[in-house]
Each structure stands twice: as structure tokens, then as C-alpha cells.
Simulated assay, not measured.
Amino acid sequence: MYCLAVDSGNSFLKWAFFKNGRKLELNRVSNRELHNLYSDWRLLRQPDTIVVSHVSGHDVQNQLAQLFNMWNIQPNWIKALPRQCGVINNYTDPAQLGSDRWAALIAAWNKFRDACLVVNIGTAQTIDVLSSEGVFLGGMIVPGPYTLKKSIQYATQISLENDNYCFQIFPTNTTDAIYSGIIQALVGSIERTMRLFQQCQGYSIKHCVISGGGHAELLPHIDLKYIVIENLVLEGLLLIAQNKERY
């Protein structure tokens, strides 16, 4: 089976082309340059299936729909389900869970089959919790590193764009204070979620899975065991496309 998996995020689109589960191509493009996909995709063999996680706006979705028209195939724009690929969705309205978060949870569960903290660091930072039974217990969304930097700049006119700052435990100038505060807040939300899980569930999470384009800034400051899995959403999309209902 040839599968085109597309992770359409708020700022970037990532895609992978698989043959029988083996990755043949992998790339990403800014949402401002989606037109460049045509030259890449027209070189691909026609996929048997196209599976898409889309969390960006309607304009991006319309552009993608036009690009998919180069093949005579209907894309699968996934939505979170009450249960799929071994994961049980505990959201009050399961369909409201972002498709990217759902695909990432499916990928993490099918890799570890154990309690997981699934963290994706991009335009937003999502922190989602899987129980040892494969139940998505819930999660949180906070602004990611880049978004927080731009927000501070907009609110205070203090720029963090010239690399004139660094992380300090006790910062002694304003730009270091802002940047260090951003790092501490984002890392703190991850570590606090880990502690609260143990308090509420009575056992520890063994696996913290981190993905997303903004993770590099946070990793040196995370004081817990973690594993980085690039393109976690794409891996989950492949599982969904393969329809491996493994309970």
C-alpha cells in the first residue's frame, strides 16, 4: 500500500510517503509556500490512500484539496473518534479533540502500550496523558516558545529576535528574564503534569514522548526521562490509514 500522510499544522505542513509502512519520502513546507508541494507530489507514484490531519484554517484546507486533485482519490481528513487503534478518547465531545493530538496519541500508544505523556511543541504546546490502559485522560494546550516570544514582543515592544538573550536560573537583565520565564513556564507545565498524574492515578508515567519543531529549546531544561520522536503525528496517521484496530 502506498500512503501519503499529511500533517497540516498552524505554521508548517509535514508530509511523508510510505510503501507498505516503510517511509520513502519525508519533507515539510511553510503554510505560506504550499504551492511548492505540487512539484514534489507530482513526482510521487499515485497513492492508494491519503490521510490528513488538518488543524489550520480553511484557506490552507482549500489549497490542499486542490493539490489532492492531481490524483483520482478521496483524501481521509481524519477526526478524533471515541476509540481507534487501541486508544480510548475521554474528551467530553471526542470529535473536538484536535486530529493532530489524536494521531500523536495513537502513535505513542502503539509504540509503548503503557502510560505516556505525549508532548508536542510547536505554535502551541500540547501535553496529553495516556493511562496504562490506553485511555486518553485529557490534556492541556499552552502557547509554544515562538508564540510566547511574539506575544511578549507585541505586549511590551521588547524584542527577542536578535539572539540577545540566554537562559539563566536567576536572570539579571530583562531579555534574559523574559526568555528564562518562557522556558521555565513551558518546562514547568510538562513536569507538573507528570507529578499530578502520579498523585491522581497512583502510579508513575514511564514514557514522556516529545515531538514538534520547537522542542530543541526546551530539551536541555527538562528534568525527567524523555524520548524524542520526530513526526509523531505522521506515524499515527499511517497507523490510522492501515486501520490496525489493535485492542
Score class of each variant (00 low, 15 high):
D100E: 03
V135P: 00
S99V: 12
V55L: 00
I127D: 11
K23C: 09
E133C: 07
Q61S: 11
N36F: 04
V142Y: 13
F68T: 13
V135T: 14
N90V: 01
D40A: 07
Q63P: 00
L24F: 14
L81Q: 14
L67W: 09
G57C: 12
M140L: 07
N36S: 15
D100T: 07
G57I: 04
G134N: 08
V119L: 08
N90C: 08
L24V: 14
I141S: 06
A107H: 06
I73P: 00
V87M: 03
Q84P: 03
G139Y: 15
V55E: 05
V87D: 01
Q63C: 02
H58C: 08
A108K: 08
A103K: 10
S56L: 05
G21R: 11
Q61F: 03
A103D: 11
W102H: 02
S39A: 14
Q46E: 15
S132G: 14
V119F: 10
T49C: 12
Q46R: 13
N90Y: 01
V135L: 14
V29H: 10
D48E: 06
Q63H: 10
L130A: 01
Q96Y: 13
Q46S: 15
G122Y: 06
T92P: 11
R28L: 12
I50C: 09
I106N: 01
Q46T: 15
N27D: 14
A107E: 02
T126S: 06
L81F: 08
L105Q: 11
L44C: 01
H54Q: 08
R101F: 10
Y91W: 02
A80E: 03
D114G: 06
G86N: 06
Q84A: 09
D100V: 07
D48K: 02
N20Y: 03
Y91T: 07
D114E: 04
A95F: 03
Q84F: 02
Q74D: 14
A107L: 04
S132R: 15
A108Y: 00
A107V: 12
G21H: 04
D59S: 07
I127L: 11
N27A: 14
N72W: 12
I106W: 08
A107F: 00
N90S: 07
L117F: 05
Q63K: 12
G21T: 02
I78P: 01
T92L: 13
G122C: 04
V129Q: 05
Q74F: 06
Q61A: 09
C85E: 06
P47C: 08
V142N: 13
V135I: 15
E33S: 09
H58S: 10
H58Q: 10
Q84H: 02
S30C: 07
A65N: 15
D40E: 11
G134S: 13
A104L: 08
E25L: 14
A104Y: 05
Q125T: 10
K79G: 00
M70V: 13
L137E: 07
A124V: 08
S53G: 10
N76C: 07
W102Y: 08
D59F: 04
L37S: 03
Q96D: 14
I73Q: 03
V135F: 15
I121Q: 02
A103R: 11
D59A: 10
G134T: 07
P75F: 00
F112N: 10
G138Y: 11
N31S: 08
V119D: 07
L117D: 05
V29G: 13
